[in-house]
């Protein structure tokens, strides 16, 4: 099956600004869970905005579900690629959460009862059903983010792209969000995380793409990135403490390939058992 999103030799620059994307090539298959990472200004958001037609290539091409984005409207592409913006307040337009869901369905041709079912499903899926009649301003940042995701999910896009989803979230909210993303992935959605939160990206994604100054630096499965085949530092990212520790522990013959606390624990315990066994 051909990749769902094909980016071919993409060049783009904003008026009055430096070239934002310089010859980007990327294929995204259906069902992937990947992260696009890099510092501010690397071009991550610019790249992902090409997936739903908010930006069009100046040179090169972007194909989504077989459609060249230059020949489609944002509305059309939005049914395939749902984009969740960094600041949920920019994309919440209605007085209640329920009305917000209906807004996303206004362009969709379905009988009202169908629409109502979809809205119910999505609200429950994201754990925001009890906020149905509340104004989005009354919610916490984490709850608002989930409402923003719900408002995009209601169109049932195959791909969901989230721009810096962990900004301003606390530990519990982050975990909740991670759970939601995993669930969506298990249901078959393709997930693209645009983020500089290394821990979050590595906890969830299988594939890591790093960018810097409009170019892709590395495009690898996460294990390879960790093993040093790509440098997070070169992409302007900060290595979490556990990463640094795991790398140094190799010198003690401790091998950690999973950067959750459980994974690290397992790795250390294996080594302990090995030395006890001797």
């Amino acid at each position: 099956m051909p990749p769902f999103i094909v980016v071919h030799d993409l060049y783009f620059s904003y008026p009055n600004y430096v070239t934002a994307l310089q010859g980007v090539n990327l294929n995204i298959d259906k069902g992937e869970l990947m992260a696009i990472m890099g510092e501010n200004g690397a071009g991550k958001t610019t790249l992902v905005k090409h997936f739903n037609g908010l930006l069009r290539p100046q040179s090169g091409s972007v194909t989504v579900d077989g459609i060249d984005t230059r020949n489609a409207t944002v509305a059309e592409l939005s049914t395939r690629v749902g984009y969740v913006f960094q600041n949920p307040l920019y994309q919440l337009f209605s007085e209640t959460v329920e009305k917000e869901m209906m807004l996303g369905l206004s362009g969709v041709n379905l009988p009202d009862s169908e629409k109502k079912n979809r809205v119910d499903e999505v609200l429950i899926e994201l754990g925001v059903e009890r906020f149905r009649n509340r104004h989005p301003l009354m919610l916490s940042e984490g709850e608002r983010k989930r409402v923003a995701i719900a408002s995009v999910l209601v169109m049932d896009p195959a791909v969901i792209a989230l721009d810096e989803p962990t900004l301003a979230l606390d530990y519990t909210e982050k975990r909740r969000l991670g759970g939601v993303i995993e669930r969506l992935h298990n249901e078959g959605h393709t997930i693209i995380l645009v983020t500089h939160d290394v821990e979050f990206a590595f906890d969830l994604s299988e594939r890591i793409v790093t960018m810097s100054r409009g170019k892709i630096l590395a495009d690898l499965p996460k294990e390879k990135v960790f093993n040093g085949e790509a440098s997070l530092d070169a992409a302007g990212l900060v290595e979490p403490q556990l990463f640094q520790l795991a790398r140094r522990l190799k010198a003690l013959d401790v091998h950690i390939s999973d950067f959750s606390v459980e994974g690290a624990f397992a790795g250390v315990m294996k080594r302990v058992k090995r030395s006890k066994g001797k």
Binding site: N52, A75, G82, F85, N87, L89, Y90, L92, S106, G107
Partner: peptide, 30 residues
Amino acid sequence: DITDAYKARGIELEKSMLQKIRSYATMLVP
């Protein structure tokens, strides 16, 4: 950004004058 977010909700912008005004009013909220 807000206009982009609105477009990304699958709503076609170019329609009747009345709808255009309604769209702009909606975008004013955020």
